[in-house]
Design a protein around this nucleic acid. Structure first.
Lengths: 190, 190
DNA sequence: GACGTTAGCGGACTCGAGTCCGGTTCGTCA
DNA sequence: TGACGAACCGGACTCGAGTCCGCTAACGTC
């Protein structure tokens, strides 16, 4: 693992700053990759070499926010962090994750829908899945892997976008409803 | 509502037949709309006028299979059709729907991922949602609308594809696991 | 059977994502 | 400090989705 070259590092920062500016001004979907490259003063090849595709660019921009949540899960206070019972941690996760997705909806949407299956391939998703699996397993939930995936499918940006924008649901209600559903899933079936 | 023009009807059938041939031979993702148009002996504009986009073409090809399942739900025998208790009907639906998705995976995938949110906008999806909502409501499940969407999110082609292809899960196990999860969701939370 | 209306047709066109590769710059080692 | 190789740069290029609009032919009317 060698250190990142100076020009590469500079261009990476330029691209992220340019993308942030353009996305803020005109929305994620309304900005082309050519425009990002131009705004960053960089060639298109550079963009793609580093970020893979438009979804990868979104992932990079989300990185910081996601790290914060991951940190809170790993060594923050309960109920999100360690120490609380699994059910409480699970509902805390649902609430915190929904909050994150709702505030970064366009970016998450782009990161998850840039290509079919993109959602399931991000590094962040592997983390959320691992965490949910662990909590369900800890609560002796049967089929914990499957149910973790099921819960996360319901938290997908596409679905959240639909609830929030098409059905005009309120984030608070959504959080409550999904937390309750998560509790139903974590329970052993009688 | 006027009757479909003769040339339009002829071209519709030609396009569907051509698409079916090409998709069978080279996979849904490996066929371009130009090729479908050429194989059907029809212009590209005709394709798009009638089917909207590649996802719409997939929807049209799925139509018959979906109608069969819808028929079975509306007036087939129990447990899928009316007569059985809601929980039994729900697990029967999960099994039947998974079966349908698994056997037409590429087509369903195309119909659901051709554009972001496409899955939630198809007519068929409205039917499945309505049915699940009805069953959950009938069983006095709280937040029945939300939970119906959650269940269907887990049955999305993208997710099923991942379970089946990336994780090499067996369809039978998947059916069993998701049926059990559906039962957890239909239950009133203690 | 001729005529006007209009839905439907089709292929050239636009637009953006993603690829490719010749040229350049950086970091290293003598 | 100079030279070498690897990593990186960038913009021209390809490829496919989806649009547009002048033209054609089907259907209803007389």
């Amino acid at each position: 693992m060698v250190r990142e070259r100076a020009d590469a590092a500079r261009n990476r920062l330029r691209v992220l700053a340019a993308a942030e500016r353009l996305f803020a001004r005109r929305g994620v979907a309304g900005v082309t990759m050519d425009e990002v490259a131009a705004e960053a003063g960089v060639g298109k090849g550079t963009l793609y070499r580093r970020f893979g595709d438009k979804g990868g660019l979104a992932v990079a921009l989300l990185d910081e926010r996601e790290r914060e949540l991951q940190q809170g899960i790993l060594d923050g206070g309960p109920p999100l962090g360690p120490g609380a019972p699994p059910a409480a941690r699970l509902t805390a996760f649902v609430a915190a994750y929904l909050e994150l997705v709702a505030t970064q909806l366009d970016l998450v949407l782009m990161s998850e829908t840039s290509s079919p299956g993109a959602r399931l391939r991000t590094g962040a998703h592997a983390f959320w899945r691992q965490h949910c699996r662990y909590l369900l397993r800890d609560a002796n939930t049967p089929e914990s892997e499957l149910r973790a995936d099921l819960l996360l499918a319901g938290l997908a940006a596409e679905q959240v976008h639909h609830w929030l924008h098409d059905e005009h649901r309120d984030l608070t209600d959504l959080t409550h409803g999904l937390s309750t559903a998560a509790l139903a899933l974590i329970q052993r079936h009688p």
